[in-house]
Design a binder for these strands. Sequence first.
DNA 1: GGCCAGGTTGATG
DNA 2: CATCAACATGGC
Length: 257
Amino acid sequence: MSVIHNRWVFVRQTGPTLHARTAEPQSDWAWLREYLQLDVNLDAVLRTFPRDEAMNAARQTCRGLRLLRQEPWECLAGFILSSTKQIVQIRQICGLLCERHGTAVQAPVEAGRWFSFPSAERLAACEESELRNCRMGFRAPYLLGCARLLTDGKLELEALKTIPLNEARERLMTLPGVGRKIADCVLLFSLGFAAAFPIDVWVARALERLYFDGRPRPMRAMIEFSRNHFGPNAGYAQQYLFHHMRTTGRAPVPATS
DNA sequence: GGCCAGGTTGATG
DNA sequence: CATCAACATGGC
């Protein structure tokens, strides 16, 4: 259950079939197909992964894993709020933000109350203290700064889709609170750059373990390696490594045979 | 209580 | 340029 493109939706999967329920009848499901990236040929993507033992193992444990195509502003805001926070807490902060500053969306009564993610315009009009009250701490001025820059037209996220990856990343990194990692997340999860490879603590651990013999490496070395090693869908590979680390608590270890 | 969490920033060698 | 503490808040 969640709110996607301002609509409440409940999605579940039985075997190969996807079921979706909304509050109102839908004549066109393109918004959901887009969000779930159902037209992506996953097998074709997987074939571009490097043929090493680490990726083979990750591919097996994450079979069927896909990337979402999120709305750019929601994606950017979400990742600004994510820095040095646990995933459960990020959800809590986003929930508070939606309740207090989003708008209610139609949902079945038994589903409870649901809200859209607040627009940049809405947050730009907030005081910093109102955002801090959503428990986001030192991230409040970053989020507020971004909301105001975007509202003022200093940067248009949609326009980044049509320029080269490196230029789009540079533009994103001019925003307050947005460094290399968050920029790469926005590029990968909302702007369609499948080659973007966000390196967070989990992925860094996976790389150290699987490709650097357990030795910590400088970030620039890991960036350089990822650019050369993972190919045109590096972002998908990143997600497979990340998800495996998250679910098993350790990097995918090649099967001992 | 101390350490860590899907990092970024600004101040120091 | 490379390193490093500070930044809020909460869970274990």
